[in-house]
Design a protein around this nucleic acid. Structure first.
Lengths: 351, 351
DNA sequence: GATCTTTTCGGGAACGGTCCCGGGAACGGT
DNA sequence: ACCGTTCCCGGGACCGTTCCCGAAAAGATC
């Protein structure tokens, strides 16, 4: 056992030439005769030689590795996004290392330092909701490790960012509820420390304002992006003296918790309460009634984040940073569809 | 920019001592005076020194990295298992690199070679269903990279393996259907190239035999472990002249496809058709009616696979390999529960 | 005070590659 | 015959760290 992997030096020894010559032959430098090159390549193939990437890393100070920190890999939104990152990374010779922050600030800091210590070439992040500050990412940038954010971005850190038009998606979604005849529309927001939570809330708020509907404090509650928190908020909202006739949840996970509670309590969707989520997880279509949701292109977000990061790694152009805003797509299903209509904007005016 | 990270040599230069001395001070060798050790440690802390793991890797031929190949990271079963792997790996100073085979043999081979080239210290695998052969993993073992399988194991490769008692889980599940009064029980198996598919099928078959129920060819169909394939098989089964009154699906993903079709077609669960899945994904409880399922401890499987792998990496004890069999747990929900009874084995005898 | 042991440290090789520098051989031009 | 080019190749340095070996300094023993 312990078959020591064969090196360039071994090839050199067997052919009685220097290791520099072998090195030259293997990545076709011009300074080599056709004859020796063939001999080297032939022997390398026979010995099943593969270059040691660690030696390369040490020399070039490049690991061909990118890290990715997400709150939670179990969340299908993030696992899809990771799939997108993997897709472009592997096609361009990079490897992906995954870290979970479990939505904890401390863990996120540890992960970031780990990545720096490990000399990853770059990092893709969706921040933890409990992080009060993002200077641990700025530290990475200062040691020349570029960072790209997606979805849950940091406004503090200057870099490329990929997100969706959360505001408009929420606006459209809320307007859809209004068009369906809902007038008492509640909102379960995410943690207000996150950009996505604020933007979705603002979209909701402005849609209400546009249609002269009141924004009532007791109809706006905040939750973690989790099913259990969504369930708790649902109890809270339905216990109100003046009950909402629609709930717009800031994520599908929250909405799923709400969905469960509403059914437990015997409310009919959408007749008693309409329910709208955000992200359009693949599970959402399977609920009964199926959940309407503002769809996010999670895989594509991962892809674009990876492309921007590789751009940063390979070209080091840190002059002008870009914020890519992808489009959401309102997917209407049974949980909100009260009126079978043409769905054109004109019908909204009637309301 | 380009702040070059500080090295042991830099510390040595500033203190006017040799780099060997610095090295000794940093990992407290005994051959060092208390005085110089303190000076070194103090300066290292001030300069924010962190050792370069790449140099270590080159020297020790150890990367502190383990790879994991799963068919699909989107599958919650696998993302949970990855969470388990990450849990023990990180706590013991290892990093996790994720590869997706997308259930393709070619991709699985490429991934395996990638991992070998990258000099990972070990590999955890759940094999692709389309892999006719697993010698690419044996090649890894020959170059001293240990491999551990979980769930979808290879019978060809000798090593540690972690799985659940698929046979017994399927047996119990099928018996549960029988106890609920079902007599025409169909099975949608997974690809028969996989151990888990075969074992679950055998459990189903033997449970039928025990209760003197016929095993009818047209009631046993095979599918990929996907929702869409499950849906197709459901149409096929319900089109039969003699319809099944229960369907035991080899996975929850298949069962979810079936669930959707049964509702489309207007069948009531469990009155017209009872439906049982396998794995108990968190989504399954949210369906209407909620899906009964044979639960697998996915996170724990990942944990144990990682523990066995680290054992192999650190102790190189390749003498006796272990196959850990974890327990499944039948979770009964609305999709199969026709009879509210004590559920004790005695009631099964009546049938 | 001479010799021996112990403590403490420096020098260099090694890990597996890349790359720069310089040098020998072949060759052509004058 | 001499010199300048060009073509190939070998010899080292280097990346950051550990580890082995030897040596200087300090302390111990008689």
């Amino acid at each position: 056992m312990g078959k020591t992997s064969i090196t360039i030096k071994e090839i050199a020894r067997q052919l009685n030439i220097s290791k520099s010559t072998v090195s030259r032959a293997l990545r076709d430098s011009s300074e080599i005769s056709e004859h020796t090159r063939e001999r080297v390549i032939e022997l390398a193939r026979r010995l099943n030689y593969s270059p040691n990437p660690i030696a390369l890393s040490l020399l070039k100070n490049r690991t061909q590795t990118i890290g990715i920190i997400v709150p939670d890999i179990d969340n299908p939104f993030f696992s899809m996004a990771i799939g997108g990152v993997e897709d472009v990374a592997y096609s361009r010779g990079y490897h992906v290392m995954i870290y979970q922050s479990h939505d904890s600030y401390e863990r996120e800091c540890i992960d970031a330092r780990h990545i720096a210590a490990r000399r990853a070439d770059g990092l893709i992040v969706s921040v933890a909701s409990k992080s009060p500050d993002h200077s641990h990412f700025e530290e990475l940038q200062e040691s020349d490790i570029p960072v790209v954010f997606f979805d849950r971005i940091s406004e503090q850190v200057q870099t490329h960012k990929v997100l969706v038009n959360d505001y408009e998606g929420a606006f459209e979604g809320t307007e859809h509820l209004i068009m369906q005849g809902c007038r008492r529309i509640a909102h379960i927001s995410g943690p207000m420390g996150l950009n996505i939570s604020r933007n979705r809330f603002n979209g909701y708020k402005d849609a209400l304002a546009k249609h002269n509907l009141p924004l009532r404090d007791e109809w706006v509650v905040s939750a973690d992006y989790s099913q259990s928190d969504g369930a708790e908020r649902a109890y809270q909202l339905m216990a109100l003296r003046e009950r909402p006739d629609a709930i717009f949840a800031a994520s599908d996970r929250i909405a799923i918790g709400v969905h469960w509670v509403l059914r437990q309590l015997g409310y009919r969707m959408p007749q008693d309460v309409a329910l709208l989520g955000f992200s359009d997880l693949s599970i959402s279509a399977l609920l009964d009634p199926p959940l309407s949701s503002v769809a996010q292109p999670s895989f594509e977000m991962g892809r674009q984040a990876a492309e921007l990061l590789l751009e940063l790694i390979e070209n080091k152009n840190t002059l002008d940073f870009e914020t890519r805003v992808l489009k959401t797509n309102l997917v209407v299903r049974g949980s909100t569809l009260k009126i079978i209509n043409s769905g054109d904007p004109a019908s909204a005016e009637i309301l």
